[in-house]
Design a binder for these strands. Sequence first.
DNA 1: AATGAATGAGCCTTCATTCAT
DNA 2: GATGAATGAAGGCTCATTCAT
Lengths: 197, 197, 197, 197
Amino acid sequence: MDTQREGKFERILDGAINAFAESGFHQCPVSRIAQLAGVAEGTIYLYFKNKEEVLIRIFQERMGAFTAKMRLELAREETIEAHLRTIVRTHFSYMEQNRSLAIVTQLELRQSNPRIRLAISGPLLEYYHLIEGVIKQGIEHEEVPQTDLRVARQMIFGALDAATTDWVMARNPWTLVSGVEPMVTLFEGALRLNRPN
Amino acid sequence: MDTQREGKFERILDGAINAFAESGFHQCPVSRIAQLAGVAEGTIYLYFKNKEEVLIRIFQERMGAFTAKMRLELAREETIEAHLRTIVRTHFSYMEQNRSLAIVTQLELRQSNPRIRLAISGPLLEYYHLIEGVIKQGIEHEEVPQTDLRVARQMIFGALDAATTDWVMARNPWTLVSGVEPMVTLFEGALRLNRPN
Amino acid sequence: MDTQREGKFERILDGAINAFAESGFHQCPVSRIAQLAGVAEGTIYLYFKNKEEVLIRIFQERMGAFTAKMRLELAREETIEAHLRTIVRTHFSYMEQNRSLAIVTQLELRQSNPRIRLAISGPLLEYYHLIEGVIKQGIEHEEVPQTDLRVARQMIFGALDAATTDWVMARNPWTLVSGVEPMVTLFEGALRLNRPN
Amino acid sequence: MDTQREGKFERILDGAINAFAESGFHQCPVSRIAQLAGVAEGTIYLYFKNKEEVLIRIFQERMGAFTAKMRLELAREETIEAHLRTIVRTHFSYMEQNRSLAIVTQLELRQSNPRIRLAISGPLLEYYHLIEGVIKQGIEHEEVPQTDLRVARQMIFGALDAATTDWVMARNPWTLVSGVEPMVTLFEGALRLNRPN
DNA sequence: AATGAATGAGCCTTCATTCAT
DNA sequence: GATGAATGAAGGCTCATTCAT
């Protein structure tokens, strides 16, 4: 019973991700979500308060899983270089393996609707904290010079985000992970790692 | 007559920027654009094919002006350091002085609607080329090591974009320009400028 | 078993009366009836063909009980004065003691839906007949002058109905029974009872 | 322009009266109102906030007109007998000439929705006041014995209301006005008019 | 050219009813 | 019999677009 309920919840979430990826949150009729999820339209309202909540839960559930994975991967490494590489690699490979989620994340992350913004901000802030934590650790270990944490995080997140958006938008997408090394190199330079003396 | 036409065209564009900034492209009724522009609803359709085209023209006209200004500012400088600083400063100060445009740019830039994407891509690609041109010049002058142009541009644009989005989203926004120097420092590091040897 | 069946039938009827009284027949979801009756939604359809039939049975069962009680009370009295007083007193006190039923009766009695109208008409006609019977007896006993039976019944029923509706609608309801004597006096006058000669 | 606007407003009101009379407020789709009014569905929302407001305006506009007519007719007469007869005659003849309005009035007057109740109460209270005014005058002129004003008004209004409902519900409706004299006679008796001493 | 009243397609959501368990 | 999850039809309302003036 409970697994069936959960199964349907997940199916709707997946259907919504694909539906939103297809045409965007506002363009996408609830009927399309239902169709892709293989449930009736009304069923969606047994699991979600409304269409808006479906979008919100996508971020909470799926971005949450992404951040959890990121935290796990980071915990496996010690050095700041490894941490930076982990961030880039995990970000790119996760998005590459979840293209529809990437599309939704990249495109619908930016919502002027304040209710949605607020609900999205949670998982996003958590990710921001992870990135800032890595930088902070580098500074504390005196491997990275004093830097404005927010600006550094904006650079890292922004770079990953722009790369992902480029990849999502491209008609014939290259592999995203091919950008890992160049990106890591840029980050290392920006944070003054690996420099002679 | 022609100036009047142009005047009305511009008024609609400005009205639309503010209207879209208020509530987002999809949430914003055409009537609101007309209201802010001080014209009748029907008048908008004398100047634009439909609502979508209004958004597209905002990018073409206003992003075009931004890119033109950027090109002008870049032409005044010689060194790559100055070019990087010019990009960051111009980007931040322009957005800061055109908050509504910034909101529309940051939030509505990302549209899954392919028609809009395509039309937007023009001005965006031009900006990308400017950024890549600066990096390329640095590489050619051997001030910057060989780097993947696209990745470097993604980092620069993404960082500026993320910073602007942060600023746009913040309830009590700090000044965006205060981030110019930290950001430039990060970019210089990433591109290995100003380093001994 | 049979009593259990009957128990559940009655519980649904009571739940429905309260549910309909809360928000009206059309506003009230079947789920609310189920909730108040303490049964599952589907169970209702084991006892009633559909929602409409629940309303119909309320009238048939509860109005039937009301009419039966009225007939019983009337049988206890002989004079037309006593009969009139019995009608008013029984009507008012019954409604006062069954406020939810009164609400449903007053508000939902009037349904343009012809199927409901038809089904309701049974118990209502029976009540009409009781009232007309009292008047007729008065005429036959030459205590009441020749009168149009229907009009007289309309007056009596309408007056009781209007008083009940007023009471049902009032925010701070007075006691309905306090209106018994004034109303009886009016009826006696209308039917020319208690007049010298 | 203005008359055209007003014309459309009235047409929608008339369409709604007929539509509500057909199937009741809740059963009636807005599309049916539009159809009967000969306008598009959306047009209704240019003149009314929502479906509920259409019902409310029917009472305010049409019941208002009814009450105004009633007041006018009452002003023409002096004696309480004439006033009573005027009330009955005007009520019956107005309803007879506006059958659909009568249906809506009789059936939809009773709405559990508090917002609708409140909006309806205005015109209704005005009518109540007119009736009570007539009784009060009779008492002041010592033609009518002391009576509870509310109860007397409930009797008069209720009787008229019940008669109208009967007529509305009847398959083969008799003329309503044929009930004027019997009803007046009952009222006169109830209020102890025309009796030897 | 300019207007804004009118249009009607489209969508979110509710809820009566069904049916597998 | 009893359940309540699932269904899907239906309807109120919005709003981009048109067109008579």
